[in-house]
Amino acid sequence: MNTQDPTVTPLALDKEGFDFAKWWDRVGILIVLVALVALMSAIAPNFNRVDNLLNIARSISINAILAAGLTFVILTGGIDLSVGSIVAASGVVAVVAAIAGVPAPLAVLLGMVVGAACGLVNGALTAYLALAPFIVTLGTMTFLRGLAYTITEGQPIVASDLSFKDLGNGYLLGIPVPVLLMAVVYLVAWFILERTHYGRHVYAVGGNAQAARLAGVRVNRITTSVYIIAGACAGLAGVIFAARVISAQPTAGTGYELDAIAAVVLGGTSLAGGRGRIIGTLIGSVILGVLSTGLILMNVPFFTQLLIKGVVIILAVAIDSLKTRPMLFRPGAKSARRGA
C-alpha cells in the first residue's frame, strides 16, 4: 500500500480571552431578536400589546414545535422534508378517529403515533439502508401528502364539534394551549439534548459519525430515533393544526418543512450536524414569527414579506458561516502549551 505523508502537527490555538465567534454563538441571535422587537414596537404601535404578543406566540407554536423535532434530526447531520406532510396525515387521522368516536386523548395520541411511525420509516431507511435522508424524506413527504388526500378524498372534513378543538383554540390560565404545548416541547427537548446521555450521543453522531461509532455510540439507533422524535413533534403539530381549524385538511402544513428548517438554521444549528442548540431554534422560530406579524401590522404586502424573509434567512446563515471560518488557521498562533 501507499506510504504515508508525515502528518502535519497542527498549530495549537489554546487561547484565552475574548472570542467573538463564541460570544456571537451565545447571544448573537438574541440580539437580533431584541433589535427586531424594538424596531417593530417603534413602527407598529399595537405590536407589544399583550394580546398581540400572545397571538404571535400562538401563531408560531406550530412551526416552533416542528422545528424543535427537526433540530434533533439536523443535529445528527440529517434532514427531514416530510414534517409538513406529517402535519396533514396525523391531523387527518386524529380528526377521522375523533369523528368515529375515539375519545379525545386517544385521538390526539393516535395523531402523534402516526407521526412517530412515519419518523420510524424515515429513520430506519436512512440509518439501516444508508439512504440519503433528503431523498427518503422527499419520498415520504410525497407519499404522506397523497395519504392525506386519499383519506379525505381530497376534501377538508369539517368537524364542528371536534372533541379536541381546545388543543388549538383553548386557553389555560390566560395562555393559549398551543403556546403551553410549545413550552413543554421545548423544555423536554432542552432537557434531553443538554442533560442526558442520549443528547450527548445525538451531538456525537452529528459531530463525527465514524468517530461516534468507534467510541461506542450506536449510530444507527440514534439516527433512527431522531426521525421518530421529529415525526412525533410533527404529529403533535398536526393535531394542534387540526384543532385550530376544527377540521381535517389534506393541504395542512404545505411548505411548513421549509419554515421549520429556516427556524433551525436561523437559530444557529449547523446543517452539517453536531453544532447547535435547541434554545437557538426557539429564538429562530420567534424571529420568523415576529417578522411576519410585524410586517403584516405594517401593512407590507405579502409579496414583499416573502422578499424580506428570504433576505433575512440568507443573512443569518451567512453570519453563521463567516463566524466559524477564520478560526482554524490563524497565522502566528502560539505553539502548544502543555499543561502542568
Binding site: L13, D14, S335
Partner: peptide
C-alpha cells in the same frame, strides 16, 4: 471546555 480542535496534535 475548549473545542478539541484547538489543541495541538499531541494533546
Amino acid at each position: 471546555d475548549l473545542p478539541v480542535k484547538a489543541l495541538s496534535g499531541g494533546n
